[in-house]
Simulated scan of single mutants.
Amino acid sequence: MSADLVQASNLWPFIAYIAAILVVIAAMLAIPHFLARPTAVRAAGEPFESGVVPAGDIHVRLTIRFYPVAIFFVIFDLEAVFILAWAVAFRETGWLGYIEMSIFIGVLLAALIYLWRIGALDWRTERQKLQDAQLRI
């Protein structure tokens, strides 16, 4: 047997597998077409599960103030994954792992304090801050 014939004989199971996949996909697309009964549904335009009738446009513009808070949430939530992984391997890491995680948590706390001090976590606008200051006077 030549090398080309051996390669071709090893390739036929893969070709048969791809053909079987295509047949199954075609059957999955064709069977509902033949079995479905075309009926006019009275409640076709009504809400399905929530029961709330949509009002207005679904494309609502959010203010830019929501995005930094969302980004900070994702960042600090991702750090929870690292802390969880450290907690699972706590005994294997020993004191060195404990010191490294303490430094990591310290950096996170420093970042959180920095964000808090610069007002990145504050929801109020400058106008609202001025109004609050005027009310205090």
Rank of each mutant, 00 (worst) to 15 (best):
P13L: 04
E46N: 06
A120R: 10
Q134Y: 08
Q134D: 08
G45P: 00
F104V: 01
A8W: 11
V74G: 02
A30P: 04
A3H: 10
R117M: 05
I118R: 14
Q128V: 01
G106T: 09
A30I: 15
H59P: 00
Y17M: 05
V23N: 03
D132R: 14
A43N: 15
D4Y: 15
G45Q: 07
A111L: 12
V6H: 15
P54K: 03
R37C: 04
Y98T: 12
V107G: 03
L29K: 10
A80H: 14
V6C: 10
Y67K: 04
A111D: 02
L11D: 07
T63I: 13
A16G: 11
R124F: 06
S102H: 13
L130G: 01
E46Y: 08
L5I: 14
A19F: 07
I25E: 04
W116A: 11
H59V: 10
F76N: 11
R37Q: 11
I105E: 01
Y67P: 00
L5E: 15
W86V: 02
Q134A: 13
L115I: 02
V107C: 07
G119L: 00
M1Y: 11
L29V: 06
T125C: 04
A44E: 06
L62F: 14
P38M: 08
Q131M: 11
S2A: 10
A87G: 04
M101E: 02
G97Y: 00
E100L: 14
I105D: 01
D122M: 01
M28D: 08
I137V: 11
S50R: 12
F82M: 07
D4W: 15
F73N: 10
